[in-house]
Design a protein around this nucleic acid. Structure first.
Lengths: 285, 285
DNA sequence: TGACATCTATAGGATACAACTATGGATATC
DNA sequence: GATATCCATAGTTGTATCCTATAGATGTCA
């Protein structure tokens, strides 16, 4: 067991998907696969149940995850113990409010561990060096570097009658009170989907929306990653497959800040393949 | 930075000596050397000052050591999280009372992390599967597997007049009160060395002896490793070079307990060289 | 139903890393 | 002056890890 394996484990735990974890770790999928297999052998316990779409953590994985995170964090802390940077570059990132927080934090890790960067996170509509947003919010003069795509799901109170169904249709939703996440870029669309003008409640942030759902006020349609973290909320698929593409938006007209160049390079590199090394080793002709 | 490097670092910190650290890690000295160099480069700080005899940790190393230990311990804990052993073999080790505690704990690590072993530590004169003792205490029917050799040094109160000298002679010691560590196998010898019959105080354990020294009662002659850990005690070499060989004693007449076989094998293997792999890779003739 | 996409596991080959041996230079010890 | 101890460097080799490619299973959609 080494720290590399722990990082892979944490990524799989977060993504619930070996392939996606491979992308966030910038390695190929088999690397993750064998690492997890080895880890399971060493610990003498199964960590993930493999099924058709992705993997599910076992109880052991839950337990192990807490410890693994501590070790990873402490290792990162140790690395930067003595790097008291005299001059830190300010880097401002605009984040849309509907982002999956743990996933985003994990994505930004390469930036946060660099002690020569002072990271500042602001709203998606403020001045920033780059923005992490849904593709639908992309401005005219912006490049888009895709990060992940997310489906929208229905978040219901655990005791809601609709939890009996595996998948919800527009007609189902029409009969029950809904919560309008007015900060979401697809808010209007969901209004039409549920065939209504008025909502049971309006929430201005994901936290409020989730709290209203948990309190039994109504149903909310939210990005998968947002709903995932809450234990007292039931998640159901919706029949109409709404997805959003989340990515990094960079102004095309303004040259990229130095601090971001490596980062964006890596992100672009992983798009088609997860390779770690340059695609072709240099060979003189 | 990976856990392997942290282990090497901890070993060097403990031993104050790359070569000795290499032995305790069962690797060769250059492996330790390069690992420390790399670690220093990665952290951007010098960790050890190399000098003629061994190395001395810098302030950075002190700081880093605390963190490194935590990470190492947590990693070991993580590894054995799910290894709830149904049946643990009892293993009893006899330890002489004058052992350097951190060093001994580090040595026994391979046994303590094995969750199929329940380690019991007893006095050196009790019934045990093996004993860690000074060579001078070796019984007739015992094998001796050398672990390390230690010089004896003088432990003085920090404000003692003799701290002005770098090295103490028998004549120096004769003029000042001394503490008799009656539990030590070399106790009588020191009595002769200091040319006296009576002592200022008698201590039955290292803890008491060190406390008496710190309190200014007198000087004690103790194994190097014992004195090292105490910040409020000054250490000086003594001119007469008394050493002791510490090792593992196994009854020759009784076959070695299974749990110990690997361990002793490793210890013997490292005696002449620190190699990790078999000395010669197998090649068919 | 068949073409296609998605996800995990395995096989085979390339490469980087960490181990080893051997040796050199510097400093103590006898 | 011979010997021992200690750390650093050079060169070689074995192993671990990564990659690509592909198989097998399942789900999606025309």
């Amino acid at each position: 067991m080494d720290i590399r394996e722990l990082r892979y484990f944490a990524a799989v735990y977060r993504e619930r998907n070996l392939t996606a974890a491979a992308r966030t770790c910038f390695v190929s999928q088999p690397s993750i696969s064998t690492a997890i297999t080895n880890l399971e052998a060493e610990l003498g316990t199964k960590l993930f149940i493999r099924h058709k779409k992705g993997v599910a953590p076992t109880a052991s994985a839950e337990q192990f995850h807490a410890l693994a995170c501590r070790i990873i964090d402490e290792t990162d802390a140790a690395r930067s113990l003595f790097r008291k940077p005299s001059t830190r570059t300010n880097l401002t990132l605009g984040l849309m409010r509907t982002l999956d927080v743990p996933r985003t934090i994990a994505l930004l890790k390469p930036l946060t561990v660099r002690s020569d960067i002072a990271l500042r996170l602001v709203g998606h509509d403020e001045r920033a060096d780059a923005r992490i947003i849904s593709k639908s919010m992309l401005g005219d003069d912006e490049h888009f570097v895709p990060l992940w795509s997310e489906r929208y799901v229905a978040a219901l109170p655990p005791s809601h009658p609709l939890t009996l169904k595996d998948r919800l249709r527009a007609a189902d939703l029409a009969e029950y009170p809904m919560i309008d996440r007015c900060h979401c870029e697809q808010s209007q669309f969901f209004g039409r989907l549920a065939q209504r003008r008025q909502s049971a409640a309006i929430a201005q942030s994901e936290d409020w929306a989730m709290a209203l759902v948990a309190a039994g006020i109504g149903i909310a349609i939210v990005p998968e990653g947002v709903a995932k973290g809450h234990p007292d909320i039931a998640i159901r698929e919706i029949e109409v497959k709404v997805k959003r593409e989340v990515g990094l938006a960079c102004r095309a007209s303004v040259p990229l800040v130095d601090a971001l160049k490596d980062f964006v390079g890596k992100l672009q590199g992983r798009a088609k393949s997860g390779r770690h090394y340059p695609s072709k080793p240099f060979r003189p002709a």
